[in-house]
Design a binder for these strands. Structure first.
Lengths: 226, 226
DNA sequence: AATTGTGAAACTTTTCACAGCA
DNA sequence: TGCTGTGAAAAGTTTCACAATT
């Protein structure tokens, strides 16, 4: 029998990590619906992948199923949670544009965060009108105080909802103090510090993928990763 | 010399389409900075790709550069705009959760949409308090009126900011009347109608990619697509 | 001299297909 | 019998390397 370790050497592709997130949200849903056992074929059908893809993704981390029977929903949900690092609480700093009808405000009200162990625990802005006030029980600090107020051991992740022109400099500052992961929403290409994991959610880019496909009347839409 | 057509037969991968969006935002930036000519090497450096990747992506659509010289920034920006279908105006229906400090509200205030030719022209909600009122000059309609108020020839795209449990049924209704593209924000896997292009922006999934990499102390972060 | 455009090679990801086990 | 786990094959994507061109 093979030995598996969570800190394995094989590089796991980003496609696999994203699909694990999808499996997780589907397993949560199945568990709440009272489903106890699921096959790779059933998961695949829900997600629009192949069953081989599902089994291969899981196989990088171990063998969690039983031949002939499938997977126990709760057990697999827990395993994937651990793989994704969700067996602990993650504090997040929210930086920028909070009071506006902006994405920062939306994230503070985001129901999905409450269900998961993802919590916004620090808020920064540069509007003097709100610096010092409390939002959701958190005192808003000035962006200039980032370095003093963020402890990357406590808040390893930051979400940036600042304007495009500010993203690069704030990411550089966060890198300097040792923040490990950043998610930013601006439509701007940035240069990523070596030690950081950076993700970008760009609504304009997603819409351009739609306009491309509609304009070019793409016939096939094979769902691979998506 | 080879003939190229925008409606070519080769299937263009999604990776290429996303990179075209990135090139476009970088070309916009360069054009505004007064840069007139750019090489594939320079674009590659900004984006973190290889120059061969840039040239290959463009080569699927034609030859837009001049050997020995590079690309004219404005000309290339225009070409990519056309490829992505951005040489026309795109009207968008916004469905759900508008008045809250939610993502719908954020999108209505999104500066990037104003710069591009992407415009929210219809708004739907089911809160009777705001149905009938005007937001940004647009009268909010009840979600029950989707079918009567959306003309997919005028509004081929919809953005869904409704709760996860409502996404599937609304996508099915939009498909029935012929809406071509949908972008939804809920953290939920859905089954995609054959004729539609559907995209999902899921902040929880992006954060889980961060927690995975941080928890597993990934050493290399090779920037391939993003 | 510099840089594009592109076949071919290298690499990555997905799917196949079946041995192995409940 | 039914379904997992996995090497091997197939498909897809990126990079190399160089002829072509300004």
């Amino acid at each position: 029998m093979k030995k598996y370790s969570l800190f394995q050497n094989k590089r796991i592709s980003d496609y696999t990590v994203r699909r694990l997130s999808m499996y997780l949200r589907t397993l949560n849903f199945l568990e709440q619906s009272g489903v106890e056992t699921v096959s790779s074929e059933e998961i695949a059908k829900i997600e629009g992948f192949t069953s081989a893809q599902v089994r291969k993704d899981l196989s990088y981390f171990g063998s969690f199923g039983r031949r002939g029977l499938g997977y126990n929903v709760t057990a697999l949900r827990k395993r994937i949670s651990i793989i994704l690092g969700l067996n602990r609480k993650w504090n997040i700093s929210l930086i920028g544009a909070v009071p506006l009808n902006g994405i920062g405000g939306a994230l503070l009200n985001y129901e999905e965060f409450k269900k998961k162990r993802l919590t916004i625990t620090k808020i920064f802005d540069k509007d003097p009108k709100i610096v010092g006030t409390k939002i959701k029980g958190i005192t808003v600090r000035h962006i200039d105080e980032l370095e003093r107020k963020i402890d990357p051991r406590k808040e390893p992740i930051a979400i940036l909802t600042v304007p495009p022109q500010d993203v690069q400099s704030i990411i550089n500052r966060l890198d300097k103090i040792g923040v490990k992961g950043v998610l930013y929403f601006a439509s701007r290409t940035i240069s990523i510090p070596k030690k950081m994991i950076v993700r970008n959610e760009d609504t304009v880019m997603e819409l351009e993928a739609l306009t491309y496909h509609i304009a070019n009347k793409t016939k096939r839409q094979l769902k691979t990763l998506k």
